[in-house]
Simulated scan of single mutants.
Amino acid sequence: MEIAAWIIVVLLFAIGMAGAIYPVLPGALAIYAAFFVYGFMVSFEPFGFWFWAIQTVILAVLFIADYAVSAWGVKKYGGSRASVVGSTIGVLIGPFVIPAFGLLIGPFLGAVIGELIAGSDLNKSAKVGFGSVVGLFSGVVVKIVLQLVMIVAFLIWVF
């Protein structure tokens, strides 16, 4: 049973880390779910109040940072709310419409289109689109680091 638990935990960790890059995957939620899988299949004994408090705070920070860092990139380059919304839509549908490069092109085009709808010229809209990609990459770095912290903390508590 313990071997099966570890296989599922590692699989959930891998899905979680992939979710840091590919936004349609559950990301941090998959990592958080791995803790419960381990608890139910092996033991909750290693996990105390501080484990759950730290992991829950990191999870909350990840949810907030996911939106805030991307929005920061758009806003830093002069984007409006319409470009933030467009960028978010682009992140979600871009990878499906353009499988190889949709993760980059989607938020860029979404922000550009959103900014054009808001009344900006093409030059400013392109600058905001670039900001959306900067925000996306910044968000990915933050997610990878925090999710690795979650996994390392789990391993420290278990071992």
Rank of each mutant, 00 (worst) to 15 (best):
V112C: 06
A34G: 05
V158R: 13
A30M: 04
A118W: 03
I7W: 15
L92I: 15
D121F: 06
L92Q: 12
I144D: 01
Q55T: 02
G73T: 06
I64Y: 09
D121A: 03
A4N: 12
Y32E: 10
W157T: 15
F44H: 00
G79A: 01
F35K: 11
K75E: 12
D66V: 03
G73Q: 02
M17T: 03
S70V: 12
V42T: 05
P99T: 07
F101Q: 05
A33D: 13
V10P: 12
S80Q: 02
L103Y: 13
F44I: 01
F96M: 14
Q55V: 05
F13Q: 06
F44N: 02
D66A: 04
L116P: 08
I3E: 15
F13I: 12
G94A: 04
N123M: 15
L62V: 06
G78C: 05
F40Y: 15
I21R: 13
F47Y: 09
G19W: 07
V112F: 05
V134P: 07
T56C: 02
F51W: 09
G119C: 01
P26W: 04
L116V: 00
I58Q: 06
G129K: 04
K75R: 12
A65K: 01
A111Q: 09
V42E: 06
T88F: 15
F47I: 04
